[in-house]
Design a protein around this nucleic acid. Sequence first.
DNA 1: ACGGAATCGAGAAGACTTTCTCGATAAGGA
DNA 2: TCCTTATCGAGAAAGTCTTCTCGATTCCGT
Lengths: 237, 237
Amino acid sequence: MALQPRNISDAGLRRLAAYHKVLQEMLLAGTPTVSATGIARVLALEPSQVRKDIEATGIAGKPKVGYPLAVLIRWIEDFLGWNNTKQAVLAGAGSLGSALLGYQKFRQLGMDIVAVFDNDPLKVGRTIHGKQVFFPDKLPSFALGAHIHLGVIATPASAAQATADLMVAGGIRALWNFAPAHLRVPDFVVVRNEDLYDSLASLTYKLEKRMAAERKAAAEVCAPVESAVVLLDACTW
Amino acid sequence: MALQPRNISDAGLRRLAAYHKVLQEMLLAGTPTVSATGIARVLALEPSQVRKDIEATGIAGKPKVGYPLAVLIRWIEDFLGWNNTKQAVLAGAGSLGSALLGYQKFRQLGMDIVAVFDNDPLKVGRTIHGKQVFFPDKLPSFALGAHIHLGVIATPASAAQATADLMVAGGIRALWNFAPAHLRVPDFVVVRNEDLYDSLASLTYKLEKRMAAERKAAAEVCAPVESAVVLLDACTW
DNA sequence: ACGGAATCGAGAAGACTTTCTCGATAAGGA
DNA sequence: TCCTTATCGAGAAAGTCTTCTCGATTCCGT
């Protein structure tokens, strides 16, 4: 035992979730134990990093053997709060909101969306994936009454701040924000932004850089035309 | 001028995208220039961090004034590759894939999804948001023929690796992966994972920690019952 | 024209993350 | 039983990212 709980970074938390996925596959395969080295190999990470992340959960492994698989899975779930399911409200019943409602696996991962709010009168009163849609002005009292502390925002950017305000007023303490907007909330509210436009930025940047590097490499091969005809077939464009 | 281009972190790239959003709002408001301080205030960041990020793009500002707004916007777009639109293919025409197809703004942000692939015979041949759906086996030749280098994976996890393989075979160099699976791809392929389960991990962890801290704080106030009746109204639960 | 205030640019310092290294420990085979 | 091998745990080192600091620059009001 021992292992004082350490601080863990955001990246570390995401890696733990990835480990959890890998471990469940291994469980199905019937492996009884797993080593940090084994997990690292699957995910192409450093074994010492996996060990550090697992250390953060407080579980202890055995030299030469590793960690007992079932126990480690359970430990990670407890650590991430997945065994203590939290009810959640969803704002925005558009295509993204509907898609999120369809993710039944969320419930196993600690989140259960119990109600949906949208200000489109055509949607209010209807049922999406088994959840009823309400007007947003009902949100605060509903959340307060049901002691809900988790809110998912899948509205257009223009409605995101107002929605966040409603949620905070309803006692929500954690926001999962899919709208491309920066939310201003009190310090005691946790926000996780899932802005696709921001994510796209790093991808387009890296792709552009990669392609530029490739073009440059190709040019370096083809530029000295005087040098060789044998290289021509490397430049088929 | 001057300003040698520096390395920028992934987080920095995401912040640049956030700045871009803020700047466009300011442009609509008619502001001619903007300072790093001003951006930082809106997004609750450190001014020096904003300055460092902007430095990375290579644009130079003027003391006491800041940066010319229109130029800075354009500079960020160029830096992120948003003015050089890249065609993309999408795999998976489920609810998430359809939602992604509906994001018309992607085109302004450097990505244009031109074709959809799904192995559901009921979907193949149909049109979603104006894009035709094809069988996945057509993907490699299509991508090669159209010189497409960007692929979006919105399939179930079980199909993600096979889809990635098809895309790599089709010359794709950057993958935006929404499936909860770890993809094994060659080194020259850039992958950006958008795994919602991983994201949820950090949120549930933080929420749980926050709520535990609140319970503890409440307990500390209420526990020494012998001490005071005046504190009772602080414990209204 | 001058002084004060705001801002930039860039290096230094600090904080945080990841990787390295090594002693200790447990399993399995000779 | 002993030796080899794989692994853990944890501190040290290296690396990366963020924040601090300060001189230089520019604007604006007097």
